[in-house]
């Protein structure tokens, strides 16, 4: 009885110490990554190669998702707005939700699932097949050659992807709202332009996506770099990347939203 009680307490303790341990490892890893960034920034072609695999290849899923999200927002928004006789405000509602929240957040979630998981698996497999160790032996720093370009690519791609998501979303809402439902075209755009502020809404949305890109990029390379060098280890690391990225994106979004948009009106 007493022994099991002690075990329970130590299990609880282990639960927290292991996580704090991991957090410390991640912080040290981020520090080392920051140092290697200066070298990686001098070799941008490496980053652009990763931008191709992470960003460009995510273009289609982001654009199509944006289109559908915008369409759904238009259908749902119209249902509620027409009850109050203000269907023309549809453009405002759709544009603000996309530019402020859904664009950066959903893009980051899609990116975590589509690109970051692949990065984790790739670096994890490099670790398992000792490619990273081989690079080290050849005096090639794997941090600046492998890790940093993938991290930078996530930061670089995310704002563009978020902008494309929001744009296709607005176009999707326009197709549903103006072309199919028949809201006045002029009112749709003019109300949107009158109520969406470039600095407060658009720039803050892009700033959000840069923060999300940093978080998702860091998590994906960290989980890959420290993946257990087994098939199971890589599978676990990939899962962890998607789960932790998604959760931290949502948490960061709450913090950023409170900081950016509280007390505006």
């Amino acid at each position: 009885m007493r022994a099991s009680f002690v075990q329970l307490i130590s299990a609880l303790g282990h639960f927290f110490t292991s996580r704090i341990d991991r957090l410390g490892l991640a912080a040290r890893f981020a520090g080392a990554l920051l140092v290697s960034l200066s070298i990686a920034l001098g070799r941008l072609p490496l980053m652009f190669r990763e931008v191709y695999f992470s960003g460009v290849r995510s273009l289609s899923i982001v654009a199509v998702s944006g289109l559908f999200v915008g369409m759904v927002l238009a259908v749902q928004g119209y249902e509620v707005l027409q009850r109050y006789g203000s269907a023309e405000s549809l453009g405002v509602i759709v544009a603000l939700s996309l530019v402020r929240e859904l664009g950066p957040v959903v893009t980051a979630l899609l990116f975590a699932g589509r690109a970051s998981s692949a990065v984790t698996a790739e670096i994890g497999l490099m670790r398992a097949t000792e490619q990273l160790a081989a690079m080290d032996m050849m005096a090639v720093d794997p941090m600046s050659r492998v890790v940093a370009p993938r991290f930078l690519a996530a930061i670089f791609s995310m704002p563009f992807l978020a902008a494309i998501f929001s744009t296709t979303g607005v176009i999707g809402a326009w197709i549903i709202g103006v072309k199919l439902i028949g809201i006045d075209d002029g009112a749709f755009w003019s109300q949107m332009q009158a109520n969406v502020d470039v600095r407060i809404d658009v720039l803050n949305g892009l700033l959000k996506s840069i923060v999300f890109g940093t978080a998702v990029g860091l998590i994906s390379v960290f989980e890959g770099y420290f993946a257990a060098p087994t098939a199971e280890g890589i599978a676990t690391a990939t899962t962890r990347t998607v789960v932790i990225s998604s959760l931290s994106v949502l948490l960061l979004d709450l913090l950023l939203t409170v900081m950016m948009f509280r007390g505006l009106s």
Partner: peptide, 15 residues
């Protein structure tokens, strides 16, 4: 395409 989308957001969506 990304820059075009940003320009769209700045000029057409926002004012």
């Amino acid at each position: 395409i990304g820059l075009l989308a940003m320009a769209f957001m700045a000029l057409k969506v926002g004012n």
